[in-house]
Design a protein around this nucleic acid. Sequence first.
DNA 1: GCCGTTTTCGGCCCGACTGTTTTCAGTCG
Length: 596
Amino acid sequence: MPDVSNTVIADALEELGDLYELDGAIVHRVLAYRRAAQSVRESARSVGGLAQAGRATELAGIGATLQEKILALVQTGAIPAAERLREQFPPGLLALTRLPGVGAKRARLLQRELGIDSLQALREAALAQRLRTVKGLGPKFETSVLAALDELAAESDGEENELPRRATRLLLPAALELGAALTEGLHTQGPTDADVRIAGSARRGADAVKDLDLVAVTEHPQELTQALGRLDEIERVASTSVAGARGRTHSGVAIDLRIATPAQLGNLLQHFTGSAAHNATLRTRAVRAGLHVSEYGVLDDADGASRMCATEAEVYELLGLPWIAPELREDRGELEAAARGELPRLIELGDIRGDLHCHTVASDGRATIAEMARAARDRGYEYLAITDHSASHGFGNGVSPGELAAQIERIAELDARLEGIELLAGSEVNILPDGSLDYADELLARLDWVVASVHTAFGMSQERMTERMIAAIEHPLVDAIGHPTGRLIQRREPYAVDLAAIFAAAARTGTLLEINGNPDRRDLCETHARAAAAAGARLVIDSDAHRTQTVANMRWGVLTARRAWLTPADVANTLPWPELARRRKRTTPRGATPRS
DNA sequence: GCCGTTTTCGGCCCGACTGTTTTCAGTCG
């Protein structure tokens, strides 16, 4: 039976939802497909495997019908309904719906009335002024369609792709940096009473954001939207009203600024922090209690009064809930947990006592051991493990066995001289394709800390990759597995590996799994990290810093951990080094790995 | 198509903006 990855299943369900939408299905049915696709994409278990066992319905949003369709996809390579609909609605028609201002209904209308089923045909019809002959469409629609087509062509280097690639998102650090610049600009150039905050997925700490949502309260909304247009970063402001403005930066990032009165800051922040799914579930719960939540207030059916909230906590309190951290607001059970009073005490950056993965000039880093040590000490850490790449890293920047022995001496010398931080000798050792490590055990045994990572041969089969990684997990001297899936956000998919088996092996052996804080990685990702902890594995959050500045990347790893619902007890490097050292599996009797 | 402290059937959040309309449909977040 061929492996069908969760990504492939999720894409198929999303496509099927799109096709049903073109077919005129009610919106709830279409949304059901999109929710199911999301659920599959986020699952750490193999959904194909679950479907074969008849258990895909264990996932949220998957019922008997979708279990059957996923099974068909796994067993035959296709979903019959999708095959049928694809003949009716060619890919070019789906491409139309990716244009701003064109949804499923208009795409279908264009196909039915004018026979348009591609971007090319749409452009020709718009130029010939034929779109306006359709009832409900007019000259302005033609203009906006041509503008959208031009923009698309410019973005894809002049090629009019039938299926435009998804616009690239902004990685979180860049999004927050842009958000900080814009809020500061609005505070200096806008009305003096303005209070501007970052909302949306950037506030939730997502890996990457599609656009930047800002919320503001002021008694002078016009002055604020005018100030937005004057900011250096802003290329244009498309539409403005007292409720806000929309624009884009010179770098092409869409900016959504929403404005209300100071008494409504809580409602506004809550609404525009999202996620859409969190809000939808929140509001459905509220309706059952006779309450209607919007960005302007909470309307109570009982007295017809709308209550404004200056803080988010007041919004949640009106619904009988404690405040929920933005990182949790993804509709992954947080509302149910809040209602039961069982929200986790999320880990914070201040809980981290040390960093167990960084590089120096000995391999591909840019700073010396002493410089990295001072940077870690300045951040208030109690310990730092120096973990340069092992011998076979390649590019001539690996550390040979002889060099590692010398490095251990250097680290010991510096540790003896340096006050305020404990330096640990470590290595990020390669997991070779056969699952072995590229230092001898005698050398590894001299190290305080060993991170084992996959850096080569990403393309092997899931079965072999799983065996390879489990071999490393079972190695008695491996303390942690670095960036366990190898993904690079928006650039490289995770390699094929059976994560459930990895988590089980890590839990069984007491091997830690890393949340790598490099903002391009954040690996494990939030849903995988959560599943790992649920499977009984413990985690470690590392910066993987290659220079002194990126020691601060711990921040992104902590955000991922928070989005994974992790508490300090789930994360090993919240412990002081002596206690963590005692808990390394090499110093712990088999099967007695303690969980805090 | 999913789901259940109203329910195994009948619901399934809330509002803004745009362009086309004389009151609304479609799209978007």
